[in-house]
Structure formats: C-alpha cells, structure tokens
Nucleic acid binder design. Structure first.
Lengths: 343, 343
DNA sequence: GTTAGCACTCGGACAAAAAGAGTGCTAAAA
DNA sequence: TTTTAGCACTCTTTTTGTCCGAGTGCTAAC
C-alpha cells in the first residue's frame, strides 16, 4: 500500500526525531516543531501509520516509535543524504594518511576510525589472503618435526603457521623447498597457488610431493581457522546509548559482538555487496536483533577483498553512517590500490 | 595494634561472607551462621573493628563491609588456602594440553583460561622477545624502498615489521643480509643481537653498516610500540557483578582495561615478583581504584619472562584466584620449558 | 478534509507510611 | 569482668496513594 505524501512527511519526521532523542514522539511536539498540520491531524495520520505497521506505541499515553518496517522504508526511500562537515572528513582522511605499514595496519586503523567517528561499533573483515600475490614463502625449522611457515604477499600481509615436517627433511631442504616454491609461484595469486601447485609439481619439489601438499592444506586450514580476521573497535561505545542502560543488555551485546566466528560470517557474506543495511530482526545473530548493521565492501579494480561495517541501535543515524561508509570505501580503495598496484 | 583471636575470626567471617554476597554483613546473620558468640558480642567487636579501620558502614542501619585495610590483612595473614575441585583443575589443565602452536598461542589461551575459570578479567603479558634466541631473520622486499622484516625465534614467536630500505639495496642483497645476520647471530638472545651486532659488523655486513643499524633500531622501536603485547580476556565478565550494575562504572572499567599501555606497564612491573596482590586504591590506574589486581610471573629456569593476572572487584575471592594463578604458573612454566629447552 | 475541544488513559514523580534490617546502649546474667 | 538479652532508635527499602502531564481517540464544529 502506498503512503501519501503527508504520511511520508510525518513518518520521516518521527524517524528523524526518534533517531535523535530515543524517546517516543508525540503529535503535539511534531506539530509545534515545524509541521504544517495541527496535532489532531497528525494524530489521525499516526493512528493510520500504526495500523499500517509503521509505528508502535509503547503504551497508550505515550508517543509513537518507528517500527522496523518504518526504518526499512526510511532507508530505502525516504532518507536524505547526509554530508560530513569539513572537520569530519579531514579527521576521517587523517586515519588513512599516516598508516602505511601494510594492509593489516590500514584496516585496523579503519576500524578505529569508523568507531570513533560514528560513535557506534565498527567491524572490519581482514582481506582473504587468497587474492594477494605471493611474494615469499619461508619455512623456518623450529624443533624436530616442526617448522614455521611464513607467507608474505605483495600486500605486506604475512601469515605464520606452525607446520609438521617429516623427520627426514632437514633445514637445508626446507630452505630449498622455500626457494623453489617462492621462485615458481612468485606473483601468483595465493588462491591459485594452492590448486596449481600440485599439478605443476616437478623439479626439486616432486621428490617431496606429499610434504608440500600437506603443507599447503595446513596453510589453507589455518587460514580458515584464524579468527583474528575480524577487527573490532568501539564495542563499548554502545554503552553510551539509553538502549543499553540495562547492564544485562549491554552484556549480551558485547558477548555477541565478540563472537568473531559469527561476525566473520556476517561480514564475509557482505563482501559481495556494495552496501547492506540490516535492520533489527533481519539480523541472523540472535544478539543483534535490537541492532542494525550497515556494511560496505572494499574492492580493488572491481575485485571485492572484504567488507567493513558499523553496528548500532536500530535507531542509528543511517544517513550519516552510510555517508561515512561511502567515504571510507573510497579512501580505502585508494590506499589499497597503492599497495597492490606494483604487480 | 594487634587484633585478638576473636576479632580476627569475626573479621574473617565478614570478609568471607562479603566476598560471596556483596551485601553488608550484619551481626545477627553472623551469629546465626555458626559463630559461637551472640549477636550483641559480635556487635561490640564490630564496633571496635570499625574504629580500628577494618570495617565500614554504608549507613547507620546497615551491616558492615570490609575496608581495604581488612582485605590487606585478609590476604596477608588470614586467608585460608583454597583448593580447586578435580573438575576445575582438569579443565584448567586442558587449556594447556591442546595448544602447542607456539608461545603466543599458549599465552593467549592462558588468558582465556584465566578469565573463564575465575569469572574475572584476565591479562597476560606477552614475553619480551629479547630473551628468546634468534632462529631466522628474513627481509622480504615489498615495494621500492620498503621491505618486510620477519624475525623468528626459537619460541616460534615471530615479529613482522615494515622497514625502509635504501634504494640501492636490491632483493638479492636483502637476501644476502638476511642470511648473514641469521648465520652470525643464530641462537643468540635477541636482546644481545641488537647491541652486539653493531660491534661485530664485518664481512658482508660492513658494507651496509648504516642500513643494518637502522634496521635494528626500527625492530627495537617496533617492539616497544607494539601494544598488542597484552592479551586481554573476559573484560565483560565484570558486568556480572553488582559493583558494575551501573553502566557508567562498567564503561570506565572497560575503558581502563583496554588502555593497553597502562596494563602493559602494570604487568611489566609485576614480572619481577612471584606474586602481587594490589587492592583498590593501591592501584596506580585511576580506573582500577575499585578493583583488585592479582598477578603472577611466569619464568623458565628462573628467568622471568612475563606476567599474567586477574582483575576483579575488591571483594574478589583472593584465595581462589591465588590458587588458580599458582596452578597456571606451574603449568605455564612446564609448557614454556618444553618450547625453550632445545637450545 | 481539517481542526479545536474534551474526556480518558497511563506512566512517572513525589510523598507519606509501613516494613525490615541492623545498630548502640543498658541492665541483667554468667 | 565478660557476655548476652532486650529494647529503643535510625535509616533504607518497599509499598501505597495521589497528582500531574503528556498523549491519545473521538466528536463536533469549521
């Protein structure tokens, strides 16, 4: 069912107001706050909006609060584009200027930037190592039967994994294997290394095919297990909001958000979308049912590398958050480009 | 001033009770709960204890709560040794069984174990890389003028740092330098590498003395800057306790504890002591004035490598926590020994 | 179709009253 | 002299009742 223009205006005003105040919005305050209709008219419209499911009333003598359906409509059609003040965009840009210590550092810095500027909770998915190009593989013997595998990619990301080594493979041979793999697969995407390697085995490597294969599978597995791939920042920002003035609610929120597995899955799914806005019960995670999640993906040359996002109360300032995410997306794209351009 | 036996017994009972219940303890409940004196007698003693500064009264008609002075006495002299149930010690031991992926992983797992078993907040100071022995140094060229320095020690710990490289140093030379440093300083303690290297410069390295020196200083600096050296776990556990039912208190606590610099300093100082118990206002950190911190150091062959600890409300279960820390200290000692024994 | 007016509802704030927990003191008991 | 029973007193917490105001829905007038 279509809402007429007046209903839309009123609904927008209510959402805008509620986002600011977190208290139910009444007809009178709206009418006095610049709306061109009397409180009675607004009241009637509000009653309609309620039966249509856009508004809810905590109790009879309270104002109305937007329902999730209202937020959905707001985000999809009614929201007006926010813009950042000069100071804010300078601040934001500053986070990307100074941190040139590799992709990981930039992304961690991004998480911090997001949480500090939005005052919500920020998440950043670290990029899948698979899309990067191999620069160096080094196997360093640790003890008998154990070695450390160090993978360095063009992005400066490195991954360290303890691997098992057959007893008859000595330090020299480990070094030779490192060299061989580095030489042969340098500048290949990591994801292709794994599958291609087995087939292309030959030369020095063929003698140790079994070992090399198990090495690779361990690396992949470790990649999957490594749950530090989600960077979290500003989780405690949420305690600022009246929604979390109840400690037990705060607790469940914090617990949910620290569940890196779930957050990983969520962000991974969002990597394929330019932007996503997930409102309240649309969230899969039980603990985010009272929150909204806004994400954006970051890409280089069109390839999605990962995603980042902001979690806030359902009454979060969607317009502002989306503007910030868009901004960050651009900045991040530029910075990452500069890391990855030297092919 | 000495307290007679009866005062001590009563004080202990009050502390024990308050640790459990977090509510002021009255004379009647003590007398009914197994004390062999009447409530009136206990009342008199409590009045004495209050003037002596061991007890405080939130208001006239409430029971008494222990003062910090009382906790101090309790910890120093009155506390009875707690012991863990079989299940608990098995649980604790389990954390150390499964994680053999290097020292870092073990210590992170330790933090988790501590916070989960104590239900308080746990901190673990990662070991200073300086005491470990160098196994491998690898410089991997990234872009022009940048390289990644990877340091691997016998403990499996590795540290990655982006460094600047003079433009006239090519990939081959980086590799040669890596080899030379590795060959010359393998099995030396990292801390001696830094200082010794400059003096022993010679052979292949002498030509690049400037570069190597700056490389080392960057590594040291990075080491100092790297604040991820404190592992934090279970910060949100504190929200369980009535002391933090007020959100603003919870907020300041979380903010304090996430201040890794301060936590680092605190733990660093504690590394030289077998155990420490710091109660309430004895803490340097403003935000820990309502907490107590109990720490223990972990050592291998008598050398202190670092420390770990538990933060809880001042009414924390000191006996239990100390027992757990002692237990963890032993376990950790054994595990680390096994990592470091192959010289 | 819009708005003014009005009766009605309900939660929040406030005050007074009641309940409860615990104390200090005194006087009796040991 | 030490311990304890008893009691009046204090102060907090809980309960109860009242009032106020914000906001509503409905009706009738504009």
């Amino acid at each position: 069912m279509e809402l007429d223009s007046r209903k839309l205006q009123i609904l927008r005003a209510i959402v805008d107001e509620y986002i600011l105040s977190a208290t139910p919005v009444g007809s009178k305050s709206l009418s006095q706050g610049g709306m061109k209709w009397s409180s009675a008219t607004i009241r009637n419209e509000m009653a309609d909006l309620e039966t249509l499911g856009y508004l809810a009333q905590p109790h009879t003598s309270a104002g109305r609060i937007p329902s999730e359906k209202a937020y959905r409509l707001y985000v999809d059609q009614m929201m007006q584009r926010a813009h950042l003040s000069d100071e804010e965009s300078r601040l934001l840009y500053g986070y990307f200027r100074d941190h040139v210590h590799g992709i990981d550092a930039v992304l961690r810095s991004t998480a911090k930037a997001l949480s500090e500027i939005t005052h919500y909770t920020a998440l950043v998915l670290m990029p899948d190592i698979g899309v990067n190009r191999l620069r160096h593989l080094q196997l360093v013997p640790l003890t008998v039967g154990k070695a450390l595998a160090i993978v360095v990619t063009d992005a400066g990301v490195s991954q360290n994994t303890v691997i098992d080594v057959p007893e008859d493979v000595g330090p020299e041979e480990l070094d030779r294997i490192s060299k061989a793999i580095t030489a042969r697969f340098s500048d290949r995407r990591m994801s292709t290394v794994s599958s291609a390697l087995v087939r292309e085995l030959g030369g020095e490597l063929s003698a140790r095919a079994d070992f090399v294969e198990s090495l690779l599978s361990t690396l992949c597995e470790n990649q999957a297990r490594d749950r530090r791939m989600v960077e979290l920042s500003g989780a405690t920002n949420m305690l600022e909001y009246p929604e979390y003035s109840d400690v037990s609610k705060a607790r469940t929120f914090l617990a949910t958000v620290e569940q890196k597995d779930d957050m990983y899955r969520m962000l991974k799914k969002a990597s394929n979308m330019e932007f996503t806005v997930t409102i309240g019960s649309e969230n899969e995670q039980e603990g985010l049912r009272d929150c909204s999640v806004v994400t954006a993906s970051y890409r280089v040359n069109g390839t999605p590398l990962g995603s980042f996002g902001v979690i806030g109360p359902t009454r979060m300032d969607y317009a502002r958050v989306l503007t910030i995410l868009k901004n960050v997306q651009t900045n991040l794209g530029t910075v990452l480009q500069s890391f990855l351009k030297e092919e």
